[in-house]
Amino acid sequence: MNETATPQMQDQTLEDYTTADGRKIGGVMMDLKSITLRFGGLIAINDISFNIRQGEIRAIIGPNGAGKSSMLNVISGFYQPQEGEVWFMGKKRPTMRPYKVARQGIARTFQNIALFEGMTVLDNIMTGRLNFMKTGWVAQSIWLGSAKKEETINRQKVEEIIDFLEIQTIRKTPVGRLPYGLKKRVELARALAAEPNLLLLDEPMAGMNVEEKEDMSRFILDVNDEFGTTIALIEHDMGVVMDLSDRVVVMDYGKKIGDGTPDEVRNNQEVIEAYLGVSHD
């Protein structure tokens, strides 16, 4: 089956539209064009193109080793593709280091959780606000008052996020002592604190029990709904993917083998063979 036979939906027709549950989807925010990423001889991403539209929840699925995390790493600047172009907000992005990408409003979580284990939950989430803190360190060191004021303003935002994700009780707990499921939630909180335009979630529900997964799904939907945050997420649980996402990219061995609505992808023969078959054996 070749590319053109893969179902394509709003990719070509980019007019704004409103989803069945009333969320507004806009034009293309992130456009990945013919991305190829190699590690030595291994081709982790093989000439993949897809886009992410303003306001949507975009899932990336595929078997282990398909190159999903690599794709998120390309988007967040952690990996630099050998070929292809990344277009963000209508502009071609030059080779950009990850901290600069973050400052452009792209926040992320990691498949293997990357938190500041020695800091409290509150401090961890506060790091997400660093780019909103404008007072220079010289001013801060000389006049602690300005630092305090800034801290208070940013604290307020952080407290809102803490309430939103229902983690009030662990605010002062060092992250290293938290169970896995809560760590994932704190990582999401830190990403949200940056008030990102685009939120990248690498397997936000991996290793969670059913109840935790339901909570996390609800949070992701609420973030998208209430803040209008565009979200790209990698997830293995097909049920979750079908429930959450507006569109799905399917990867296998570094190639894109499907792209469309959950229904379209689910009924795509190549996807069924490559992925759905694998996950049920």
Partner: peptide, 16 residues
């Protein structure tokens, strides 16, 4: 302190 704790995470919140 963030950099001392985890480089990846520090990068992801925009720390150089």
């Amino acid at each position: 302190r963030a950099v001392a704790d985890d480089h990846q995470a520090a990068l992801s919140v925009g720390i150089s």
